[in-house]
Amino acid sequence: MDVDRDVNRDVDMDGDDTTGTLDEALQRLHRSGPEFEGWLSNHGPMAVESLVRGGQAPRVHRWLDHYERRLDDMPAPTLPVRDDDWKSALGDPRRLADWITFFERAVTERPWRDVLAEWWPRLLPGIAAGATHPVIRVGHAVRTLLTAEPNGPRLAELAHGLGYWAARHQPLPPLTALPSAPDASSALDAVPIVSDMSGGILARFGRLTGLPAWAAGPVDPDSARERLGELVAAAVHRYATHAHGNPVMLVHAATAPNAVLRTLPALPRELWPASLEAAWAASAAVTAAYAPADAVPYVSGASISPEELFARAAAHGDDHAIKFTDTALDVADSTALTAAERALHLIEPV
């Protein structure tokens, strides 16, 4: 996978945003909470990071002018999260602001990598929480911090992502390890679809009983990273033929494991195997909850460059389409580009 593709007119050779747009956008967005209208996720920080990374910084503020209209203000804090009693607040969405404040202080007082390494294994069992949006938000924040100088807005964004994850933390139900295929693509094909697709994602996750054990067993860190890249590619490719099941929700079967892949370089290597296992669980769970029974062949209508494709995604304007195209360009083969085209076709543009 070519995660460091050179399609970024507004990002310098070190990966830093040369326009200042990302920091300005993050400061705007941090006035808002991580959710709106009850529990819908604020995709703004993830989308603007993708736009700037993909050379579309001039579009960001106008995009935000439209997107911000739907957002809610940051909720008021209730009770500080304490280092010696954090477990009592884990998974309590009423403590969103408390958790964000906790992590804002943590990344100010300590190196951000140390904070991430401490909390990653604590949060990883709840990777599917919030429809996987918290880990995706963390992945975008970490990508920025790995390629740019840490500063106030960028560290605050990591704190918002980790706080969101902690507040929404909710593990999947106990699952039986089912027989699996040797490769990620066949393993996703083997995921049993939930029989009752009524209700939202929490209801559907609650009906899961087992997933293929593709990521189970001992694996060394380098193999874990390689297999995680394989999973991202397989999920992106599968979108091209299965997205009609739910074009928006099935985006996360690819973007969630890619968020984990983007985070690995910032983590101790000993955490990589568990990260693979969690990423697989998240991708497979989303697949089980939303994939259709049958594939529909989809062939790209014309050859298009990665730069042109991402410009089309930016013009399309939907946050999920932008983020999926960003992930598809990390895979960067012809099937991945076709999958991104499929997203732009199926997801309603803004």
Rank of each mutant, 00 (worst) to 15 (best):
D2F: 12
R9I: 13
M13D: 14
G20P: 14
G20L: 11
Q27K: 12
H30N: 11
W39V: 13
W39E: 14
S41N: 14
M46C: 09
E49D: 15
R53S: 09
D65Q: 12
E68N: 09
R69T: 15
D73P: 13
P77T: 12
P80V: 10
V81L: 08
K87V: 14
L96P: 12
A97W: 09
A97H: 10
A97S: 14
R113Y: 07
V115W: 02
R122D: 02
L124H: 09
H140S: 14
A141P: 03
L145F: 03
P150V: 01
P150Q: 06
R154M: 00
E157R: 01
E157D: 07
G163H: 11
H169C: 01
A181F: 06
P182H: 01
D189Q: 14
V191T: 05
I193T: 13
V194K: 00
I201L: 13
A203R: 15
R207V: 11
R207W: 05
L211G: 03
A224Q: 04
E230I: 02
A234D: 04
A235L: 05
A235W: 04
Y239F: 12
A240Y: 06
A240V: 07
H242F: 15
V251W: 03
H252K: 09
A256W: 02
P265G: 09
R269A: 08
W272E: 00
P273A: 03
P273R: 03
A278L: 06
A282Y: 11
A285C: 05
A285V: 07
Y290N: 10
I304T: 11
S305N: 09
R312V: 00
R312A: 04
R312L: 02
A314P: 04
A315H: 04
F324K: 04
D326Y: 10
T327G: 02
D333A: 11
T335V: 10
A340N: 06
A343T: 03
L344C: 07
L344V: 08
L346I: 11
I347Y: 08
E348Y: 13
